[in-house]
């Protein structure tokens, strides 16, 4: 994607450590921090607790290895801020 607004780099200071193997590719989800309004829906609805809020309340993929591609987060994101990187 070329849109400059899309980035999955949240505030690096608040990003928790993860066991995810980044050599396998990017994180499973792409979060557009410019569109995200920190409504907390994805964080709360995720059945596998993939997300943690950063200090603005926006989601960070703290446990990407837990993601099962269930799509709950991106079908419930009201701001179209989550898209899937999955194959």
């Amino acid at each position: 994607m070329t849109d400059a607004g899309i980035s999955n780099k949240a505030d690096p200071l608040s990003k928790p450590q993860s066991k995810y193997d980044y050599s396998k590719g990017p994180e499973p989800l792409e979060i557009n921090m410019k569109w995200c309004k920190a409504c907390n829906i994805c964080i709360a609805l995720c059945p596998k607790q993939v997300f943690e809020p950063d200090r603005d309340g926006k989601p960070v993929q703290a446990r990407p290895e837990n993601c099962t591609q269930c799509t709950i987060c991106w079908v419930h994101c009201p701001d179209l801020a989550i898209t899937s990187n999955y194959k």
Partner: peptide, 21 residues
Amino acid sequence: GMPSVWCAGCGNGIVMTAIIR
């Protein structure tokens, strides 16, 4: 372009994505 005028967490956006899909 986004973001929309809707409040954070507004269901309108969820309906919009459902329509898109």
